[in-house]
Amino acid sequence: MTLKTLLSAAAALAITAGVGQAQTVGFSQIGSESGWRAAETTLTKQQAEERGIDLRFSDAQQRQENQIAAIRSFVAQGVDAILLAPVVATGWDSVLEEAKEAEIPVVLLDRQVDSPDDLYLTAVGSDLVHEGKVAGEWLANTVKGEDCRVVELQGTTGSSPAIDRKTGFEQGIEGHDNIEIVRSQTGDFTRAQGKEVMESFLQAENGGQDICALYAHNDDMAVGAIQAIKEAGLQPGEDILVVSIDAVPDIFKAMAAGEANATVELTPNMAGPAFDALEAYWKDGTVPPKFIQTDSKLYTPADDPQGEYESRKDLGY
């Protein structure tokens, strides 16, 4: 009894002491396989600095064992919370249990895990279907009632962003019979493939005269396709509307030049909502919902594309 009182007193002391000082958060990042992920790392560090959080960063170089080792070392260091961007979905149960036993809240960033949801505090991520839907609704609102033949550049065949963004777009244009997806092919999420496939779309659709809009599952493919449209002697953004997803700096550059019409943001700022949830949890124990969905914000040329480009170009995209 006395021991327990003593322990809880000690714990209370530790917590009060902790509130005064900077909180320590461990962040196990997957690696830097894409520009988007590099931007996520940069923004997480920025967010931590702004909030006065002491961030311990660990780059796992795409290996789960490195992430597990990082989490164990965060637990040993007694951090106040752990951010985890899991490289794969499975195999996290035991290490998450260790964190739970040490009473360290874990927040998942951007990807999900297959473990029971009581093993982590919350997950922050975007809804890929919703992103596609926002893009589809934008097109439906833009062309109004006019007939529109759309060509679609899909992501890597079978990948979840490709499937979900396709489904979402179809939901977005549902009920608008004037909009029809006439050609849909994979561009593998890359610029080069986006350009090559767009060239064949242009050939197949009467030199591009019959295409009213392009929907690309990511901005990189759209940037490649924009070049193909220009080389075919058409004006992207006017002769062919261009809508895509991700909001990387280069699409804002195209938008500023009037060559792209809309992009839906997949925000790399997953840490902001994560820290918000953690701060509320530290303060009075508020338990956030199990999934915090980030905004899928739509950007058009009206949103100062040049300014957006400038503010994003140094994030590491």
Partner: peptide, 14 residues
């Protein structure tokens, strides 16, 4: 490669 793209099959068949 180009023929498959022009023929307009679903990309799963490429």
């Amino acid at each position: 490669d180009t023929g498959i793209l022009l023929a307009g099959f679903p990309s799963e068949y490429n």
